[in-house]
């Protein structure tokens, strides 16, 4: 159990680091390309790095949001039903979402593998694009795990868990 929470804390830290550093790298790279152009220094591939960071940021961020249970949803109907019913509904949604994301993780893995074996690279920097695609199995796997975790939390704890952690 201790090991489990250690892994959990580690993952959380890694996700946060990826998301924040992707943001900062994106800003720095684009600033550098503006500067280079004005100094007549050739800098190509800034766009490609920006794309990589956007993709990693999005899929890791998706997992982070699943952990914190703050994905956008339409709660118009949820708001009108009783707490008890709402909890049941959310428990079901967590389980379904978790399993579906794990399924998507498998498809994402297939996609990454297919790009890996066929060796596609980016046009300018010639970086293998599976580095970018690898964000999808990672993101969906973690998202899936967190929603399944949310499902169990709903079964064993009081209150409603929209993700792994209780919001607010």
């Amino acid at each position: 159990m201790k090991l489990f929470s250690l892994i959990d804390a580690g993952l959380f830290q890694i996700e946060k680091t990826i998301v924040s550093s992707c943001m900062l790298i994106m800003a720095v790279i684009l600033l550098a390309s503006v500067l280079c152009r004005h100094l007549n220094i050739v800098m190509v591939g800034g766009e490609e790095i920006a794309q990589f960071t956007v993709v990693w940021l999005t899929f890791c961020g998706m997992a982070l949001c699943a952990r914190q249970g703050n994905h956008i949803l339409m709660s118009a109907v949820l708001d009108t039903i009783s707490m008890e019913k709402r909890k049941k509904l959310i428990t079901g949604i967590c389980l379904f979402t978790g399993c579906f994301c794990l399924l998507l993780a498998i498809y994402s893995f297939q996609l990454t593998q297919s790009v890996f074996t066929r060796g596609q690279v980016t046009p300018a920097l010639r970086i293998p694009i599976w580095y970018m695609y690898a964000a999808t199995p990672v993101g969906f796997f973690l998202t899936g795990i967190y929603y399944v975790g949310g499902f169990f939390k709903n079964l064993t704890h009081k209150g409603i868990y929209y993700g792994l952690e209780k919001p607010e």
């Binding site: 190509v44 591939g45 766009e47 300018a124 010639r126």
Partner: peptide, 21 residues
């Protein structure tokens, strides 16, 4: 275009190639 050979060609000419969408 963001194509390495075209970028290299313009570098040889002493120009600054800038890939833009």
């Amino acid at each position: 275009m963001a194509s390495p050979l075209i970028v290299e060609s313009y570098k040889l000419l002493g120009a600054t190639p800038v890939p833009i969408n």
